[in-house]
């Protein structure tokens, strides 16, 4: 999981320089995969939010709040729904919307940015496609690795 966090942070930085049309939010999206390691998930998300804030935005308190709310939403969602690819896609989209909206509203209230609803829409739709592709790749890589390692453990115990 630490590897996934590091990969996400690095790709977030690298891809940001290449394109202004597809904006990565890989670190946030990776929360959905990290949720599989259910133990201490909320703590993980807080640490990731803190790191993201320090490295990228200098606003770690805002990121901490946003990541915390997103992770709570993931927990509530997967308590009621099954963990599969379709649901990870859906929760990724909802998380992007939630994250962008929270950030946008707080920054507007703080008068750091001007209220422009089209900017919010643009920030959401330009992030969705690239993050879904990333999540699909990470789902197959990490969840398959998880399943394999779990199966091996199961065999060893038996």
């Amino acid at each position: 999981m630490i590897l996934l966090i590091i990969i996400s942070l690095i790709f977030d930085g690298l891809l940001s320089s290449f394109s202004n049309i597809f904006i990565p939010l890989f670190t946030l999206s990776s929360l959905v995969i990290i949720y599989k390691k259910k133990k201490n998930f909320i703590w993980y998300s807080l640490i990731i939010g803190l790191l993201y804030g320090i490295i990228f935005t200098n606003m770690f308190l805002l990121e901490l709040i946003s990541y915390y709310l997103c992770s709570i939403f993931i927990v509530i969602y997967f308590d009621k729904m099954k963990y599969n690819l379709m649901n990870t896609f859906l929760i990724t989209i909802i998380n992007i919307i939630l994250y962008r909206t929270i950030n946008f509203l707080i920054l507007c209230f703080s008068r750091i940015i001007k209220f422009n609803i089209f900017l919010l829409f643009k920030s959401i739709y330009s992030s969705i496609l690239i993050n879904l592709i990333y999540i699909a790749i990470m789902y197959f890589v990490f969840i398959k690795i998880f399943n394999k390692s779990n199966k091996k453990k199961y065999k060893l115990y038996n």
């Binding site: 977030d12 930085g13 202004n20 904006i23 990228f56 935005t57 950030n103």
Partner: peptide, 11 residues
């Protein structure tokens, strides 16, 4: 040299 850009999107 520029290393990365506009990660917070709003900033």
């Amino acid at each position: 040299t520029v290393v990365d850009r506009n990660l917070g999107y709003w900033y």
